[in-house]
């Protein structure tokens, strides 16, 4: 039984380790903090593994644990968590689908501006955006968070609009 759990755990980490590491990077710019959070997510996966009945996709279950851990990450000032994005992030265009802005995003300066805007989001909005950046559909995000799909759509639309507006203002002023 114990061996079976260990094998299942290793398999989950082997298949989802990158995903977990990315979530940790979204929330913590500091490498040590990322490592701590990664470890805490793994501990919570281990502790919740006995209760996983396969009712949701394993990826959804992993995202739930990652988001729930990030919201209750011990020893951290939640509100001060910084969202960390980098140029390798392929899904950034999902946040700002305007052609001009998309082109500008390729420039490092604009990326920094976007990062500044993302860091000003509330912890809830950061959680939602982190799932958008992961390429999850609205249905999947709704499953992870436990909101209805229309509700998630409205929230994400609102965040994107705010980001776009703030980015435009930022560009006009500079």
């Amino acid at each position: 039984m114990k061996e079976q759990k260990e094998e299942q755990f290793k398999k989950i980490i082997a298949e989802n380790g990158d995903r977990i590491a990315r979530i940790c990077r979204y929330y913590n710019p500091d490498k040590e903090d990322q490592k701590d959070m990664y470890q805490e997510i793994l501990v919570n996966i281990w502790n919740s593994l006995d209760k996983f009945r396969g009712e949701s996709a394993i990826s959804t279950w992993i995202y739930r644990i990652a988001v729930n851990t990030s919201l209750s990450f011990t020893g951290k000032a939640f509100r001060h968590m910084k969202m960390q994005i980098n140029t390798e992030q392929q899904n950034l265009t999902m946040l700002l689908d305007d052609d001009d802005l998309e082109a500008k995003l390729k420039q490092e300066a604009d990326l920094e501006k976007l990062q500044t805007q993302l860091n000003q989001l509330s912890v809830i909005d950061k959680a939602l955006i982190s799932l958008v950046l992961e390429g999850l559909s609205m249905r999947e995000i709704a499953d992870v968070i436990g909101l209805t799909e229309p509700n998630v759509k409205v929230k994400i639309h609102r965040i994107k609009e705010d980001l776009k507006r703030n980015m435009s203002k930022y560009n006009q002023n500079s």
Binding site: K2, E6, F9, K10, K11, I13, A14, E15, G17, D18, A21, Q34, K35, Y38, Q39, L42, V43, W46
Partner: peptide, 21 residues
């Protein structure tokens, strides 16, 4: 394949599993 992924983990997975057990 699996071992490679585990080895790429930012933490020592074997130690963690041992600690969890």
């Amino acid at each position: 394949m699996e071992t490679n992924h585990i080895n790429q983990s930012p933490i020592d997975l074997e130690s963690l599993i041992s600690g969890l057990k």
